[in-house]
Amino acid sequence: MSGLDSRIWDSSYVLPDYNGGSIVNLMASIARGQNACGGRYESLNLLGPEQVAQHRQVSLIVVDGLGYDFLLEHRQIAPTLASHTLGSMTSVFPSTTAAAIGTFLTGVAPVEHGLTGWYVYMRELAAVLAVLPGFGRSGAAHYHGRIDVGELLGTTPFVARLDGDTHMVAPRSIANAPFNRAHLHKSDLHVYDTLQEMFQLTAAAIAGPEQRYTYTYWPDLDHTGHMQGMGSGATLALLADLEREFVRFLDAIQGTDTLVLLTADHGHINSNAERTFLLNDYPEIQQHLRLPLCGEPRAAYAYVNAGAEDAFLDSIACSFGDALTVRPSQTILAEGWLGPGDPHPSLESRVGDFVLIPEDDRMVRDWLPVERSFPLQSAHGGLSNAEMLVPLVVAESG
């Protein structure tokens, strides 16, 4: 394969379409539509900057885990959301919260912001961290008062480009987390406890005659999907709640000249413990690793001991056969999976030596002795349609 000329790499993989079809292109359209720099990225094919510019206000609502396929499959539960869906966009690679929220909050692809998955090897701290909450997986480091998280990550907030008022609406659980505050910049922060309050605060942030940009984030659908599965009654009940509150929100903001854009960071694929390769059960593989797995269960970065590369690949092939695809990390960078642009200074150290991509609905995981294992009923990070495609829901208030 050469470059990313086509969204489809083969019959089962969906690659990010950074040439006008991904969430980073949405951010470019928003920036240009608000008279700001769109950077190196093309505007989104589905929604050009001229459409954004027709409105004084832009409200971007990110529903964690709301896949395009999932929404259309359950359109009877969410008819308004489905009827306002303009089409699908791809997420970034990996199709996960850290990488995609990193794109929403910076306006650039993972190659530039350097957030390569939930677990990231931070060479600067000699530790593996869950990069959003900032707790350590391997090594003693974590975010604390002595660390300037913005300086550590080396990212520039998207809202720094915008001249108008900016607002962030975030759940109490993460609103004042160091990662969130590092990307707040000049935005007013609005903290909510319930979905109803989230939409009420978003509507209140929109009120006013000035040009405004509001970013709103809701994590509950993703969390429940992980724990109970995307087809569970609890997850579908949350989708129904989202539909109800979205309709109320649209009624509340009539007359504000707002362009409402609701989308997601990624979708989900259902899985379970029986479909998981647990590397703790394969000491012949683990002996070749110098760090625990990083990234995601659906796209894991393997850090291999120097000189053990061939033995590692042989062990993977003998244990998993065609059920696990292995790609050299340098290859996916060269092929543009993480996007075009100037690589983040720490990018190569954050993608390991190889990327492990389980086939079908499988996952690959490991556990450290100090960790409490927990099962997942759905996952993301990989290259399936269910994980990679997210909806673009568009509504306009007069």
Rank of each mutant, 00 (worst) to 15 (best):
L392N: 04
E274A: 15
S173W: 03
Q76E: 08
I8F: 12
R172S: 14
S373K: 14
T155H: 12
G381T: 02
A203L: 02
S346A: 04
S187W: 04
A379G: 10
H190E: 11
R161P: 05
F135W: 14
S384C: 04
E210S: 14
E50D: 14
M198T: 06
V191N: 07
E245F: 01
D165M: 15
A273L: 15
G67K: 04
T156S: 15
P79R: 05
E124F: 03
A98E: 00
L293Q: 05
T325G: 13
G339I: 12
L132P: 08
E245I: 02
G398P: 07
L152P: 08
P49T: 06
M363S: 12
P133N: 11
P16R: 02
H84C: 08
C318A: 14
S6I: 06
D193I: 13
A78N: 09
V191W: 08
A237T: 05
V169H: 06
S346F: 08
A182L: 04
F199V: 05
A323T: 15
N272F: 03
L132Q: 14
T155S: 13
V149R: 03
R244A: 14
L262A: 13
S378N: 05
V370N: 14
L368E: 10
V92C: 00
N280H: 08
L201V: 05
A334H: 09
L72M: 15
R137W: 12
Q211I: 14
L261Q: 02
A252I: 04
A203S: 02
P375N: 10
L15I: 00
F179T: 09
F179Q: 03
D5C: 11
T235C: 01
I285K: 09
G352S: 02
I332F: 10
R212W: 03
I174H: 12
S384T: 07
P219C: 03
T331F: 00
D360R: 10
L376W: 06
L383F: 00
G225E: 01
A31W: 13
A323G: 15
E124Q: 03
D257A: 04
E284W: 06
T156L: 14
F312R: 11
F70A: 12
V14M: 06
L356E: 00
S271P: 11
R7F: 15
S22H: 03
G154L: 13
T216E: 04
